[in-house]
Computed example of a mutant assay.
Amino acid sequence: MKKNFPFLIIFLTVLLASCGQKDELTAKKDELAKLKKEAADLRNAIESLEKEIGVLDPEFGITNRKSVLISTIKPEKIHFEHFVEATGSVLSKKDVNISGEVSGRVQEVLAVEGMRVNKGQVLARIDAEAIQRNIEEVEKQLELAIIVYEKQERLWNQQIGTEIQYLETKNRKETLEKSLAGLKTQASKTIVTAPFSGNVESVLVRTGELVQPGTPLFHFVGESDLFIEADVSERYLGILNKGDSVDIYFPSVKENFRTKVSAVGGVINLNNRTFKVEVFLPYLQFAKPNLISVLRIKDYENPNAVTVPNYLILQDSKGDYVFTVENNVTKKRYIKRGMTYKEITEVLEGLSGDEVLVDKGFREVGDNFSVNIAQ
């Protein structure tokens, strides 16, 4: 027991020293918290007093307010243009169904879907055997009728025979000639050809099928006479006219070009309150019927417009305003806005274009705020 007594004394000494250090640290923390609270209360009291004095003395408020770090821009004087945007589709005036004109069985189909053909190229053949037999029969009858007519004509020229005999033979010959011409025309219609150059979109008939006049055989689209049709809101009726310039953009192929309005509809659609606008489309290799396009039609322009970015325009009960900077102090400037297109707004009144506007930090300032301009 006596041997362990010195170690016990050392242990108790270390323990007491440790407890003393913890008490001192706790006291310092408590003191720090107390001072922070006093400092916060003091700051609040100072700010409250500054606000009260600022209300009574505006100049004091300006000089004592903390400066806000901002960046600035100037209004732009540009040639401002406003466009009406509408979605349209490419259509073709030569989008047709080619139908059969005679009765018969399809003998041969030469066209396939997606095939490009020229005007007059054969697409299909219909069996013409019955028509051909009729042609041969009428040709023999006509051959005899011509012989009889020629003999009767010689006799009539010699004043032999009656006039009625001459006229009957002449009439029979002419009737057979017309019948033969009709049969040949009918026979020509058994060969189905392309009415104009274009593409075979779909084949609607098969070899061996029996068709009648009017039976659709092919869906055919010409490669010319394409146009774009779009629905435009009735609010622009009277603003858009034939001949107006139009910018066209095709989102699918990322192509654009400029053309003109070729026709403006005069009837309002009751369902969506729009009217039709037709735009001329020149030949474009990528243009296909039903291709989506975006039309940008200019309806307003100002060659000397003062403009500002949309995001800088704020509103209150009095109207629209922006913040300008004069001698490192912000000023609330009320404006009258005009047309807006994309990210730019035209300013009709309130700005001359020579002012300096608050850009970054415009939401952190107010009227008569002291500011520092970032370089």
Rank of each mutant, 00 (worst) to 15 (best):
V84Q: 10
R172T: 15
I46V: 14
K298N: 11
I164M: 10
V112E: 12
G100P: 01
K242A: 11
Q152F: 06
V365M: 05
N118Y: 08
L210E: 07
E168S: 13
N290M: 10
S197P: 00
T26K: 15
G222F: 06
N290D: 13
G182F: 07
S202L: 11
A263T: 00
R333M: 02
N241S: 14
K74A: 09
N302F: 08
L284C: 03
L142C: 05
A86H: 05
Q21M: 09
F218N: 06
A17E: 00
I73C: 07
S262G: 10
L210G: 00
P58G: 11
R333V: 15
A45K: 14
G20A: 14
T175R: 14
V306C: 01
P75R: 03
E52L: 13
G238M: 07
A374N: 09
N302G: 03
K29C: 02
L155D: 14
E150W: 02
M339N: 12
A128Q: 05
L16I: 15
I191L: 11
T193S: 10
Q159S: 12
D367T: 03
T175Q: 15
N327H: 06
F220N: 05
V117R: 10
N302E: 07
D299T: 09
T340F: 03
Y300T: 10
R172W: 04
E326T: 13
I131V: 13
L56I: 14
F196A: 02
S262N: 09
V96H: 02
P282F: 08
E278K: 13
V347P: 08
T190S: 15
L42P: 00
I135Y: 01
L237Y: 12
L314I: 04
K331S: 14
K77D: 02
G100L: 12
E38K: 13
A40L: 08
V200P: 01
A187S: 14
L312Q: 09
A287G: 06
V267E: 11
L110Y: 10
L237P: 04
L217M: 15
K260D: 07
C19E: 05
A124D: 01
P289W: 07
N302L: 11
A45W: 06
E168P: 03
D225I: 01
Y321Q: 03
A40M: 04
L295A: 08
N157T: 10
K332P: 07
E229W: 00
R333Q: 14
E108I: 06
Q165H: 05
E209W: 02
S71P: 03
N272H: 03
L295K: 04
S202V: 00
K184G: 02
